[in-house]
């Protein structure tokens, strides 16, 4: 009997017991669809009035619980730094010549219109994040997707030219730093950390929401740059091995 088979055999009774315990707990939850949280009700009633944003989730993410989001952003940044640390340090010895192995004709054909379009979509998702659904994280990922398309459609070299490491590093660290600095500004002005200083504007306008707008944009920048860096690390790995794969396929 293989190790895995034996282990799964052990897991069956344990898993069943665990599932039973979990189910017992879940059955004890308040019925699905019934209102219960005072905490949630407070935001539903007051968030738009207090923060002049129509997206209540954005108000919570970037203001009421903005401290969480700061931690979240740093998790993202740490993930990026960690990936770079792990993948860069072993790659040193291997040859780093950039090749252009991947060219999809469809994408090459699509490229002229597609990339600016995706980029625009990303920016749009970020900038309306506190008015309609969307926001810094979502838009940031889309923006990084645009950079990725450059690679898929055109060339790795062009991708590298468009997203040079120093610039992307600066954007990532800079975006995260702006988030921290907005918090510090609140502190410096005699309030508490992340206290809003900027006029709230008219609800529903792009220039509304005070610090929320700034934090949203900073997050978008940091996430987009961070994901580009992650892609970069993984893609650099990929391009190294492509001849291998091609040889195997033949």
């Amino acid at each position: 009997m293989s190790r895995v088979r034996r282990r799964v055999l052990f897991f069956v009774p344990v898993g069943i017991a665990m599932a039973a315990v979990l189910a017992w707990g879940l059955v004890g939850l308040p019925s699905f669809g019934l209102p219960h949280s005072d905490y949630a009700r407070y935001f539903a009633q007051h968030a738009t009035g207090q923060r002049h944003t129509t997206n209540v989730v954005a108000a919570i993410v970037f203001d009421y619980r903005g401290w969480d989001t700061m931690g979240e952003e740093l998790i993202m940044v740490s993930g990026v730094m960690g990936t770079a640390l792990l993948l860069r340090s072993t790659r040193g010895e291997e040859h780093r010549a950039a090749r252009d192995p991947v060219t999809s004709e469809l994408l090459t054909w699509l490229r002229p219109g597609m990339i600016p379009l995706v980029l625009l979509l990303g920016l749009w998702t970020i900038s309306y994040g506190y008015i309609t659904p969307g926001g810094g994280f979502q838009g940031g990922v889309i923006g990084a997707g645009a950079a990725l398309l450059t690679w898929l459609a055109g060339s790795y070299q062009r991708y590298q030219v468009l997203t040079p490491d120093p610039l992307v590093d600066a954007a990532e660290g800079g975006g995260a730093f702006v988030y921290l600095a907005v918090g510090l500004a609140g502190l410096a002005a005699g309030g508490t950390y992340l206290h809003n200083l900027i006029p709230l504007g008219t609800t529903g306008d792009l220039a509304s929401g005070g610090t929320i707008a700034v934090l949203n944009a900073a997050t978008g920048l940091a996430v987009a740059a961070g994901l580009v860096l992650i892609f970069h690390e993984f893609l650099e790995d990929y391009t190294e091995t492509v001849p291998d794969v091609a040889a195997e396929e033949r």
Partner: peptide, 11 residues
């Protein structure tokens, strides 16, 4: 939903 969409299609 948008988060999950971008994550599961791109990242």
């Amino acid at each position: 939903a948008i988060s999950e969409l971008v994550v599961s299609t791109v990242a």
